[in-house]
Design a protein around this nucleic acid. Structure first.
Lengths: 341, 341
DNA sequence: CTGTTAGCGCTTTCAA
DNA sequence: TTGAAAGCGCTAACAG
């Protein structure tokens, strides 16, 4: 493979001149030399060696995405997919590469840190909450990073959705429809997201004087199978809520299946809402009322911020507002249909 | 940042000894020296500089994924997602990175080639068909690569699904149910996949003496909106087929929506089949009969093969068999329900 | 067995 | 204005 040395030799000029000619600076090179250099480069099919350049410039033009809870099938969930897609788009526009760093070196954060500090990435987008050990290490080493999906504690630039107002929108919507008895299928309760949403739910529901019986609230995870199973348990009780708030769209699908199994019509017998507005939401029946998380915009902003950070510029955290999307899975509760009957 | 030089100086030994101690070879190092080296490394918080190593070993321990028709939202489709996920898994197990190379340098394949030859990846997985200009360049430069989703022409190691037998399974299934009148919503007709499937469909249908009227066959793309629209046009005709074969699951969803709009029950009035078995298939109603493409396995094999190739070992192409998954969107045709009526 | 040293290909400082 | 040369941090060939 041809190198700048070959080009220099061929033209009897110095490598520095070739380098400057090829890079268009910082030193100026006479136009006719430039042309010759480019011509010879073409002829020798010269391809710049990016690794050599990286070594001397100490920058890789690559950013990393680090999911803090790496799993075998990380890229199969819509959340990471949307983030990765958005990051890819902004990186591409700035001719940067993006590396998806799942967790080569096992789960020890300190070992894992090697991956980040060995020069392959200039900075990382960390998808984790604040208790992340890795985040701590990044902060203490001042390694350029931004966070997604963590509450903003001022330690790192953070980009996320306003979970609280999302939940409030949902409760308000149900309140407007006249619902008084609400059930809640929560996510993993150790997750900050879950906690914020639940707190908002309880507060807002209390505000409206809604009833949320303990037996209508159940733990789940993010999968529809679980919420299907748990949903059946809820539905097999005597008294039922008239509306169910599900932690995310997937669990809403599971719960809707449970309703179908028990012969409950949605939304007539039971209103159901989700959270997220996943990409395949248009394919499920009935169409689900949910809150859209602007995941793409969030990731977009995070990536842009990281690149600023890498370039040495200051950045500020950003909280995004979700959007209520009313579809066909919510309506007035049955007993409210004829309020004066 | 500490380097091996610092460690060497600290212990009054040579850098080569340090290097060998750290890497565990190829030269052997006395155990007690090794221990000292590791201790000092720890103490100085030494992190190996991977870029420097790359420069001398001329290998990046990174493979690339190259979608030949890069789009803004490349990672939003399930196909690339599954491929990426699988590749990530095998790469991780072999401590390799994977770079998703969408198309930085514009669409000129030759410029684009720079990206691949500048040392950042040791080889690439090309997702393209055989007419790919980029593939041609890779072949002529003997740059390590494998192909996914192209017919195997013997030029490059190729990994894909047997489209023909997939379509045959589908037609056989419909024939067994007693369908005689078949419609077909095809994909983009310039795509080799589409062509193979259509050829197989026509041949197999002829074999069974099935009727496929031209007005039951329509072009589409891969999106449900299109097939929804086109589906309505088909359904507004006088005579209808009893079963519709859709190019992929997404278009099947669109067509099923069209059926719903026209009051046709699935599968009673119309059997519908898709192709792919996308991840969210469990969420649509009625559950779709389809052919599963083992995309994950294919990508897995492709990635493993690429790593072999990079290591200098020979590899062989592989064709994967699809699998018919019968669910609730197909049944006997109506007029066949009482064959002797 | 271990230390010295020559690069890998590039950028950039320092001299001329 | 341009060339020579010093590294970047590492591996590995070579020398002792």
């Amino acid at each position: 493979m041809a190198t700048i040395k070959d080009i220099a030799k061929r033209l009897n000029i110095s490598v520095s001149t070739v380098s400057y000619a090829l890079n268009g600076g910082p030193r100026s090179v006479p136009e006719h030399i430039k042309e010759q250099v480019w011509a010879v480069a073409q002829e020798l099919d010269y391809r710049p060696n990016r690794v050599a350049r990286q070594l001397v410039t100490r920058s890789s033009d690559t950013i990393g995405i680090v999911p803090d809870h790496p799993s075998e099938d990380a890229m199969l969930g819509p959340y990471l997919q949307q983030i990765f897609n958005a990051v890819l788009n902004v990186a591409e526009r700035r001719t940067q590469d993006v590396l998806f760093l799942s967790s080569h070196s096992g789960s020890d954060p300190n070992t894992y840190l090697n991956t980040l500090l060995d020069g392959r990435v200039d900075g990382v987008i960390l998808i984790a909450d604040n208790r992340s050990k890795l985040r701590e290490l990044l902060v203490s080493r001042k390694f350029p990073h931004v966070m997604i999906s963590a509450p903003n504690d001022g330690e790192s630039p953070t980009f996320g959705v306003n979970n609280i107002s999302g939940m409030i929108m949902l409760v308000d919507h149900l309140a407007e429809l006249g619902h008084k008895k609400i059930g809640y299928l929560r996510g993993l309760s150790r997750q900050p997201d879950s906690q914020f949403r639940e707190a908002a739910l309880l507060e807002r529901a209390a505000h409206y004087g809604m009833e949320i019986r303990p037996e209508w609230v159940r733990d789940g995870d993010f999968y529809s199978e679980t919420s299907h199973r748990v949903g059946l348990e809820i539905l097999d009780q005597r008294d039922l809520p008239t509306a169910m708030i599900c932690f995310n769209d997937e669990s809403a699908v599971g719960f809707m299946n449970a309703c179908r199994d028990r012969g409950l019509k949605i939304p007539e017998d039971m209103s159901v809402v989700g959270f997220d507005n996943v990409p395949w939401i248009g394919y499920i029946t009935p169409k689900l009322t949910t809150v859209r998380q602007p995941t793409g915009e969030i990731a977009h902003a995070a990536a842009a911020a990281l690149l600023e950070l890498v370039a040495g510029n200051p950045v500020t955290s950003q909280l995004f507002e979700p959007e209520l999307i009313v579809r066909d899975s919510t309506s007035r509760p049955k007993e409210d249909k004829f309020p004066h009957a």
